[in-house]
Every structure is written in structure tokens, then in C-alpha cells.
Nucleic acid binder design. Structure first.
Lengths: 343, 343
DNA sequence: GTTAGCACTCATTCAGTGTGAGTGCTAACA
DNA sequence: TGTTAGCACTCACACTGAATGAGTGCTAAC
């Protein structure tokens, strides 16, 4: 359906448009690239490409703009993979040296890194859905009235919170308590600690109602958190550099969407079945109507098959797919090993 | 220097401008408020007010706009305190129920809350400058190769990080080690753990170089972190709703500034000597040139006299000072008690 | 199949003009 | 002496129409 020359022209148009954000005219193509044919011929081909649904015209006397379909074709069968620059690789390699503290911080700074490297908005979803199981809890004494309750999960995540302890209760007693409670809950998935188990726990801490409530609260929180999907947004200001967002209203609309955690969660919803590669969603392929002029490149982390989170770069359809995809691919693999060694 | 009528007129102009963002004309004042004098008279007064430096004219045929000086006068001696609505109080009271997990999260969600309530950008600086001292550390075993290193400070803050442990080292041995190290470091301010102390620590862990490095790294991090001032930004999109930021360039400039942590740290730098009240900085009073058309209301938290952090609301000079100040005052006091009971 | 030439479309720019919202000044008035 | 009506003046803003130029589509010739 598309002859090689049309393919070539389409490619040039897409690449031109990606770099300039201006509708591409036949003459521009003829001038910029030596195809050995005249603008008129290119016009004819462009006309055909428009009929095929690959190009669109904002108005009669403008150049032409690639359609979502064109980008899809470009990404699937025209684009060269693109390599990650040495500078970017160095940036990634150095980035996590100082930031391996905990998962949240890793995700947060990944968002920052991604948006910096791709010059686009990035979204990172920390999805701990059903991931971790209770390992044990412990009290770290602080002073006569307070201790820090540490709940340790089998994936290495820890939840701390301060709890009031019965005045003068001794460390040894706290340890004893912690042991008893731990034995009850050990191995239980954090998000499945229900009333029945808590009832058992209550029987251990029967002596002190308040302490029990504190512990329950912390458990709930951690269980809840483990179901919770935390969203990190990076580089919102990158939006403002894109000519397609010169209009404040448009920025407001999109930013409004992205500040709604629920929306972002839906947007990044991982379909369980997908393989672990990158997923590219282009323009009108997006279900969310507010971003149908945007594209998204998404990668999902798995640790031992369990989903840990997903990260995405969101930008105008006129995105540097080659660059974004290669960066994400590299970063994705990098993080995979990071997670693998950390755990 | 200002007669009562001028005062009244100035007040009306300021309040009008705050709510409309349009330069205020003499006729508007005459029409909207029944002062019993004609626009011409008001014009005369306005002219005087301009000479006194309280009003400015964007151009000849526009109305007038309050100067920084006017807002300063307004805030200091004209404005009524304003009360926090029941809805806002309820919002605050409910807000932290689910969010008392740890300091970072409290700060983060405070930023969100503040910007939501004041419809402005909020900045929260978690300043742990020289606050905490080392209490003890402990290893929480995870599996044969990993443990979680918990460093507990006397203010109840905890740092967790995963460390590799020598294969097969037993929990009891780890506890012994932890005890030895803890005894060396106990009571030392976290940001003053220097090479001399670390050398002592090394002698404890001489057996395992890697473990030592891990511990040192974590200590450094926590020491570093305790000096570090973490910045949380809330509600950046609020900017876009303000007519003074209809221009994308302006938004970009300001957002660029606010994403620079260093700039924000400088901006929020707390002058040690100030009392614990609110600090209002208006327009040109700001030292940072990029925000001289903005005002900032700032409150600093102290726990037992030690600075824990500071929060600020940043908006156009045309800010609803009454509302913002009362909200911040209320929230400030609320958090004070929250911190007091949490600690 | 290719291309030059030309008519046609349409966004954008710019000057010119009118309009209306303001002010400042002056002179009259209470 | 303070107040006000009246009027001239300023200036942003909106509107208009013309010129411009970047494009395309079509046609006829090569």
C-alpha cells in the first residue's frame, strides 16, 4: 500500500515534525533532503499519504502533520533503535549511588531522572499490590514513654512509626511482646491481615489497650500502603517548553489530570498479561480523552515476577520516540539489576 | 500622613484588587461602595495615595494597583485577622489522621494541604539542621545475606537501609556488633560523626570490610540527611489559575526557580532570631528577584526550640492575606500540638 | 511518471481607526 | 476650603481590511 518512496517521505516528514513542531511542507522536504524529485512530486505523494491516513492537514495552506497512525507505523517499523549517549549512561550509573535508601526514594528520583533525560513529564507508579509479606515486628525503645515500632516485610521494606508505650515498660518486655505478635503474623501477606488475625494479636497485648491500637494502626497502615499505589510525578515544567503547550489552558488541563492520583493510576494500569517490554501508546490510542494528543512510553518493573512499579514518559505525540525508548529501555534494564542486587 | 478617608479608600482598592486582579478605577470604588463622595474626589485622594507610594498606575488610562508598600500597610495595620472556616478546620483535623507515618510524609502532605486550602503554591522545607543525635543502631535480619540497618536518633527519626551481611553471620553476632558500635556513637549529633569516630567504629567491625562500608555509608547518609533540607512543593498548578500567570513564560520562570531546591532553601532560610510567629514577605521585599511580584507567608516549626521545618505559601502579591494568614496560623498551631504529642 | 506553472486558500501580520475606560485639570459651587 | 461637574487627554484594546507569503491542488506539457 505504501511504496518505498512514500515510506521515505513519510519518515522525513515525521522526523522533521518531531524536531520542529511545524507542519511540514513539500518544499521543505525537497529543500532539506536531496530526494531528486521536485516539490510537486512530493506533494502528490503526500496527498496519497493523506488518503492512506498517515498525514493530516491543520488547514489548506499549511504543511502536513503526521497522524497517530503515522507515529505508530514509525515506531513499529521505521525507527532505528537509537543508542543511549555516554553522558546519559553516566548519569544513570551515578544517579542511584546516593539514592538507594528506600523504594520510595528510588521511585521519586527515578521520576526526576527520567524527565531530565527525556525532557518530558515522567510518571512513576510504585505499585505494591499484594507484594510483601509480614516478616516480624520489633520495638526500638526511645524513651520511657515512646518506642519506635518497626514492621519488617519479606521484601525488605520497613515501616516505622512512633508508638506510646505503657509507662516504664521494659525493653525486654517489649521484645517479648514483639516476638509473640510476630509469631502470629509471620508470613502473612501484609494486605491480608484481617480482623481474625488482629483478634489473636489483641490477646497478646491484652494488658495495654492503647499499645494494641497503635500496633493495629501501624499494621493497617502498612497493609493499606502495600495495596496503595503511590504516584510520583517528575518534571512538570518540561511541559511548558513544548510549543504544543504554549496555551496555559491546555497546560492547566493536563496538569490537573496528572495531579489526580486516581487518573494517573488508571492511566498506568498495568495489564497483567503484557510481557516485560516497553509499551508505547500513541495519541488517539490513549483511552483518556485529555491526553489524546500525547504519547506515552511505559515500562514495568518486576522483581521475581511480582510487579513492583511502572514508569512512564508522557509527552506530545511529537515525541522523540527513538531517544525516549532507548533511554527507558536502558534505565529499565539498569533498575532491574539494581532491584535484583538490592534484594 | 494618611487621613481616615484615604485609609478607607486604600483599603477598598486593595480588597477590590485582591478579588478582581483588575486595576481599580475611581468610578468603580464610587459605584461599588457608598462612600458619599464622587469619583472625582476619590481620584484626588488616589492621586495623593500615589504620591505617598501606596498606589501605582500600570499606564495613564488604567485604574490603580496597590504597591508592595500598600500591602505591607494593609497586612500590618488594616486587615482583620480573618477566621478559619469550619470546613477548613475539619479538613485539617481529618488530614493527618491517615498521614502520621513519618516526618517526610507529614511534610509532603502538609504541602498538599496548604496549597489546597490557600489556592496557592506551597513550599515546605524539612530542616533537620543539627537537630538529632545518634541513639543506637540495630540490625534487623532479613535473610542469610541481607539485614536492615536501623539507625535511631533521639528525636525518634529512623533511617533504614538494606545492607549486605557476611554470609551466615548470626543474628546474635549482629546484635553484638550493633551494641558495640552504638556505644561508641551514642549521644553524638548525627551531623558531627566524623572520621575519628568512624575510625573507632572500624575497629569494631574490622572483620568485615564490606559491612563496615555499608554502615559508614548509612551513617554518612543519615548525618548528611540530617543536615540536608528537604523541599516539598505543593500545588504548582495553582499558579496557572492566577491571571498574573497567564503568560507561559512567566510560569516557566517561576516554576524553574521553585524546582531548584537550592533556590527554595535560600528563600525559606529561617533567621534564627525570629520569634515563632508568621512572617510575611511582600513583593519587592523579597530578595530573590524572580519573585518580586509575589508574596510569601511563612511559618516555622520548632520542637523544644529546635527548628524542624518551615512552611510557606507563595502567591502573587495580590494574595488573600487574611485567609492565608489565618489558615497558616491555625495549621501552625495544630502541627505544633501534633509534633508535641508525637514526640 | 515527473514537473513547471498557476490559481486558489488561508493564517498571519500590520497599519489604521474607533471605542471606551481611565485620569488630571480647571472652574464653579457649597 | 473641600467637593464636584465637565472636559480634554491618554492609552490599551478590539476591529477592520489589505498585504503577505506559505502552502496546496490541478492541469498541461515534457
Amino acid at each position: 500500500m505504501m511504496n518505498p518512496r512514500q515510506r521515505k517521505i513519510l519518515q522525513l516528514i515525521i522526523e522533521d515534525y518531531i524536531s520542529t513542531a511545524e507542519p511540514v511542507a513539500s518544499r521543505t522536504i525537497a529543500r532539506r533532503h536531496d530526494l531528486g524529485i521536485s516539490p510537486a512530486t512530493i506533494r502528490n505523494e503526500m496527498s496519497d499519504l493523506e488518503l492512506l491516513g498517515y498525514l493530516e492537514q491543520p488547514h489548506t495552506s499549511a504543511g502536513r502533520v503526521p497522524s497517530s497512525r503515522a507515529y505508530r507505523y514509525y515506531v513499529d517499523s521505521m525507527m532505528e533503535p537509537g543508542t543511549v549517549t555516554a553522558a546519559d549512561r553516566a548519569l544513570i550509573n551515578g544517579w542511584y549511588k546516593e539514592r538507594r535508601r528506600n523504594l520510595d526514594e528510588i521511585f521519586q528520583s527515578t521520576a526526576k531522572l527520567l524527565s531530565r533525560m527525556t525532557q518530558n513529564v515522567s510518571l512513576v507508579l510504585a505499585d505494591k499490590q499484594g507484594s510483601a509479606s509480614f516478616l516480624y515486628l520489633r520495638f526500638l525503645p526511645l524513651d520511657r514513654e515512646h518506642a519506635i515500632l518497626c514492621i519488617v516485610a519479606d521484601d525488605g521494606s520497613v515501616d516505622n512509626c512512633m508508638v506510646d508505650i505503657p509507662l516504664g515498660m521494659r525493653p525486654a518486655e517489649l521484645d517479648y511482646l514483639a516476638g509473640k505478635v510476630s509469631r502470629i503474623l509471620e508470613g502473612k501477606p501484609l494486605n491480608q491481615i484481617g480482623d481474625d488475625l488482629l483478634k489473636e494479636v489483641r490477646e497478646c497485648i491484652i494488658e495495654d489497650e492503647m499499645l494494641f491500637n497503635n500496633v493495629v494502626q501501624a499494621l493497617r497502615r502498612m497493609g493499606g500502603r502495600s495495596r496503595e499505589q503511590k504516584v510520583f510525578l517528575g518534571g512538570a515544567k518540561q511541559l511548558l517548553n513544548k510549543p504544543e503547550f504554549r496555551d496555559v489552558e491546555r497546560v492547566k488541563e493536563l496538569l490537573g489530570l496528572l495531579e489526580e492520583e486516581k487518573v494517573v493510576r488508571d492511566l498506568l494500569q498495568i495489564d497483567e498479561g503484557s510481557d516485560s517490554g516497553l509499551k508505547v501508546t500513541i495519541g488517539t490510542e490513549n483511552k483518556l480523552s485529555g491526553i489524546q494528543d500525547c504519547s506515552m512510553v511505559q515500562a514495568t518493573y518486576r522483581v521475581n515476577g511480582r510487579i513492583v512499579g511502572t514508569m512512564a514518559v508522557l509527552g506530545p505525540t511529537r515525541m522523540e520516540y527513538g531517544k525516549v525508548i532507548s533511554v527507558m529501555d536502558y534505565l529499565h534494564r539498569y533498575l532491574k539489576t539494581l532491584f535484583a542486587t538490592a534484594r
